[in-house]
Design a protein around this nucleic acid. Structure first.
Lengths: 228, 228
DNA sequence: CGAGCTGTTGACTTCCATCAACTGTTGTGG
DNA sequence: CCACAACAGTTGATGGAAGTCAACAGCTCG
């Protein structure tokens, strides 16, 4: 009981539910826990539920025959997967696995459809989340196709810098993932990323110590993007 | 008056509207026409409306400083742009232009929000459309990053083949766009595409005459993808 | 200690974009 | 009606960005 209450409690998209709807969600929600590295599903598995994260993090990625992996999206608390399953039987295209200890709420398709019809607010929340994700996906498409590795790296560093702390000369932050994982997100390899980073360092734009990153010249970094 | 009626009439996502909502949509919808090649907006323009296509086709793309263009998505009748604008002020990231004579309905943000709150059916329709578009975008991400040009070409040819007519030896269809435009969709250049196509031809898998395409060996083509 | 993981560096290779030239077609206006 | 411009597509030559392969250093952990 507690865990199901938690389920609804901690998920923003359900924050506006009426008491009646809360009961309905109660009755259809299944709780599930995943450990780091645990697989939720792999390519080809049937998905017929909407999955909302309570805590932790999941990663959706695809891998080709050469073992090359592309991270498609990452899900944090409050985010969800399975929106397409609300509308049709769905074969997963990609692998979903936990990159942190993760708790999720799983809602079956049909029951969730009812909740959505009764609760425009929830539909509205979903719509907003989807619109943002679509915009992000389309930005990634453009970046992969139009920017070289250096430019994609700089773009990501500047993005991460927004969460960092300002210093006299620039911004300092700690990379939340390994450099190899960042390479996979950016659609490149650890080797290439390492070389590009070395070059930025050589040009006096960035210093790194492990995952600790210091951007020394935000303006110059921004310029790299602007002439892209 | 006629054109506004047409607006709602011919757009599937509004097919379930109640009479009251129909009136509301009437009052907020602006009709607009674009000729081939005409620009709807370019990168950085403010977008504060939802735009639904009645007929024609629009293309959303981004171009980098070298003139390299990536097609992000194409919109046909019934499809829409501006979903993100429903939630926030939005700077367009990319250029939107007409690739056919096009009629659209434009709905201002605030008014559209009301319609959505009152009409769960419309929200549901939008949700379904968005979910599909997101899935498509994520497929494109994976393809751009994991497949080489030949594989992306074959994938697209097989997709197009679904709309073609079967022949003794395979499937025949006509390319709906120029080869150069296809190259842009696939994130490559006309030159590269031409070479890959020549190679497929040489291997006896495909013949072409202008935009007329004949796939001679679906199984072999599918194999190329399966080993990817 | 040794195993395993993260990250780096060097040598090599390959795919593909770019540049340039050329063909064939279409359409337009003098 | 022809000439010429504009565009679609092809082909060859070339260069460069980045992926691959391999070896190695440093770190952590059992």
């Amino acid at each position: 009981m507690l865990k199901i209450l938690t389920c609804i409690d901690r998920v923003p998209i359900f924050s506006t539910l009426s008491p009646a709807s809360v009961n309905k969600v109660h009755s259809i929600a299944h709780h599930r826990h995943y450990e780091v590295g645990e697989t939720v599903f792999t390519t080809g598995d049937a998905v017929d539920y909407l999955m909302v994260l309570i805590s932790g993090a999941l990663r959706l990625s695809r891998t080709n025959k050469n073992g090359r992996e592309q991270i498609i999206r990452e899900l944090g608390p409050g985010e969800f997967y399975g929106e397409l399953a609300l509308f049709a039987e769905l074969q997963a295209e990609g692998d979903l696995y936990a990159i942190a200890a993760t708790d999720v709420c799983m809602m079956e398709r049909k029951a969730m459809q009812e909740v959505l019809r009764d609760s425009p607010q929830v539909a509205w929340s979903l719509l907003g989340a989807m619109a943002n994700r679509l915009a992000e996906a389309e930005r990634l498409i453009a970046n992969l196709s139009l920017l070289d590795v250096t430019e994609r790296l700089v773009a990501e560093l500047l993005r991460l810098a927004e969460t960092g702390e300002a210093t006299a000369s620039g911004v300092r932050f700690t990379l939340p993932i390994t450099w190899a994982q960042l390479a996979t997100k950016l659609g490149t390899t650890p080797e290439s990323l390492s070389r590009r980073l070395k070059q930025l360092n050589h040009n006096g734009l960035v210093t790194t110590d492990g995952r600790h990153v210091h951007l020394l010249n935000l303006k110059a970094l921004q310029d790299i993007l602007d002439d892209a």
